[in-house]
Amino acid sequence: MMTAMTDTSPQPAPDGRDEAERKRRLRQRNLIVLALLIAWVALIYLVAIVRMGAQ
């Protein structure tokens, strides 16, 4: 029985179209992670100000 995690058999090399698509998706993901991190920092900043104002 072989699971996806233990499957070490060689995968076929991605062709040019797959490679371009992989890069596009990776860039898209990175931009989303960046946006989420900025939003998270902004949220912490905003709530910290609100909490300080309440004290």
């Binding site: 995968q11 076929p12 991605p14 698509e21 998706r25 990776l26 898209q28 993901r29």
Partner: peptide, 9 residues
């Protein structure tokens, strides 16, 4: 081919 393209958001 799916893993080669990577996951989308």
């Amino acid at each position: 081919s799916m893993t080669a393209r990577g996951a989308s958001w």
